[in-house]
Design a protein around this nucleic acid. Structure first.
Length: 273
DNA sequence: CGGTGGACCTGCTGGC
DNA sequence: TGCCAGCAGGTCCACC
């Protein structure tokens, strides 16, 4: 579900309401997520204060005064919402963290592809999938030159390169497709065939598209909600994603959908070559 | 090593 | 109305 703009929106919503709050109670209703929720979870959280909320790629990091870090990944259908404790719970609310503010943080995830891990701060970098994450798209080291060097010799399609978290951390299928529309490159093109100029354009476009999506609080086309359980708005601004058969907003031709692997890619065959 | 395809889950939609 | 196939924002692992 949530890609970088959605995760960033959630973090921005949570930071001011969680900072300095103390956890008074923890309920784990469903342990079977992508990894089982570990047994010490409740004991290590209860009574502790939250010091900060951060994002790395699509991961949410909730830092505690104890140097423990609660790491969450929302998978495809996860939500992390901050609500009044009195609000009725819903099906698929898996982890409930009660705060001294009278509110609760609820991790909700119908498909259970998400991840919840509690680690010591220093263990973070040792997490294999975490250690291998590429640059953040807003990192100044994420340049055309960097992306160009990674695409040399790569027979993969450019859409697949962009959603590879080792290349750049935080892009998923929606934003990879949107970025490629703005860079005027078809998602199906083999990465090695792209010249310097095109790769430069992709790298420059990436943070621009993401920044705009963050301004609109992310994309909700079904599950995604922000920290206060509100919809995002960026779905109104999508150029290609989920628009098969609709008119391109630039040239009025019909948007096409093709399968790359098991996932859809969307493009305008006139605007994108 | 690089690349692909399926598995993991639930829920929703559209066709018959 | 019901049933079934196909599809969904992600990641990981087995296999070539």
């Amino acid at each position: 579900m949530p890609e970088l703009p959605e995760v960033e929106t959630i973090c921005r919503g949570l930071r001011p309401v969680l900072r300095g709050r103390r956890i008074t109670q923890v309920d784990v209703l469903q342990k079977q997520l992508r990894c089982p929720v570990d047994l010490g979870f409740d004991g290590r959280l209860r009574g502790k204060a939250i010091s900060d909320v951060a994002r790395r790629g699509k991961y949410i990091l909730i830092r505690l005064e104890t140097e423990d870090v609660w790491i969450l990944h929302l998978g495809m259908s996860g939500k992390l919402i901050h609500v009044k404790a009195a609000k009725p719970r819903e099906k698929h609310d898996h982890i409930i963290v009660r705060l001294d503010s009278g509110c609760e943080l609820r991790y909700h995830d119908p498909r259970r592809f998400g991840l919840s891990l509690l680690l010591r701060h220093q263990e973070l970098a040792e997490l294999p999938q975490f250690g291998r994450l590429g640059f953040d798209p807003f990192d100044r080291r994420f340049t055309g030159q960097y992306l160009y060097s990674l695409t040399r010799g790569s027979r993969r399609r450019i859409r697949d390169v962009l959603i590879d978290q080792r290349v750049v951390a935080g892009l998923g299928n929606i934003y990879a497709n949107e970025i490629l529309f703005h860079a005027r490159v078809r998602p199906t093109v083999r990465a090695w065939r792209l010249g310097r100029g095109k790769v430069q354009e992709i790298a420059e476009t990436t943070p621009k598209v993401l920044r705009k999506a963050i301004l609109w609080c992310g994309t909700s086309f079904s599950d995604y909600r922000d920290a206060e359980d509100r919809l995002g708005e960026f779905q109104k601004h999508l150029r290609v994603y989920d628009r098969e058969g609709e008119k391109c907003r630039v040239c009025r031709n019909r948007i096409k959908r093709v399968a790359i692997g098991n996932r859809s890619a969307f493009y305008c065959s006139f605007c994108q070559k």
